[in-house]
Amino acid sequence: MNSNKYDKILLAHGGGGQLSDWLIRKIILPKISDSQTELADSASLELDSNDICFTTDSYVVKPLFFNGGDIGKLAVCGTINDLAVSGAIPVALSLSFIIETGLELATFERILESIGKTARQCNVRIVTGDTKTVEQGSADGIFINTAGIGCKIPGINLGTGNIRPGDKIIINGTIGDHGMTIMSQRQEMKFQSQLSSDCAGLSDLTVELLKNVPSIRFMRDPTRGGLAATLNEVAMQTRLSITINEDAVPVAPKVRAAAEMLGFDVLTIANEGKVVIVVAPENAQRCLEICRKNSLGKEAAIIGQIEQAADIAVVEMNTKIGGRRIVSMPYGRELPRIC
């Protein structure tokens, strides 16, 4: 069958018949698989340890391609990062597509290439998957679900329960890049900008940190809701307060400008290549140095610390001008302001 015959995804491409088979063998597998991939109903894996982490997430993003990434890269990195911040070394992913009929085959191929490339870079294998097609209007181009398995690094036990007053909070670089890039590229928000998403798999950095820095208490990737949401979750779970310092929080000037223009608080904007690390004070400097030497953490900074709560646990920020304000939990949907 000639691949040129189809330039768009049809309903039958997800129907389990000849067209499905063609799509999987000729289009999907060559781009994402390695020599060991088999076409069985489920993958069988041999793992180094029986202490595993398992996670899943679904990805919908508009636009499908954005500066610094695309939905494919996002789907691989997102699941890798969920494993990475749990203290695991990511091993294998599953990959499922829900595709709206009419999606250009070329678009799908670009996404697949990106998935393959990202997985190879992050040293994870894609071992099983599924493709479904839905009628036009039932999906927005393509939705991706990934699930992932990782092996826990021996002796590592991360969790908010480990956190103590005095612990330092580190972030591996600038915040808000992903969210502001997406917002600036959304059709309804056309404004010129040169922003780029930070979308990246973090396991290379997290594994290095966990193997070399003792007493890392907790890690979390501040995706939706941004740094503000992650810090508020920590405060809520630990019943400890948090103070961060505005002049220590790295923000790219362009991201700051775009956020200000739209009236957003950059602390609430999503990241896709960032990790918040809570570490014992005596090891904070070492943690920072390792971050900064890694390409994923060049602009890392110690941004604040954990404190005993006076009354109720709150997250607060010392502002650049010497003031202080609350950093509250974002409510989920920030809207751009008028003028």
């Binding site: 502002t319 010497g322 003031g323 304000r325």
Partner: peptide
């Protein structure tokens, strides 16, 4: 002005 309102709160100006 709403932009002033947000700026005043966000920068913690009331606290100083």
């Amino acid at each position: 002005c709403g932009t002033h309102t947000v700026a005043i709160f966000r920068h913690g100006i009331r606290a100083i």
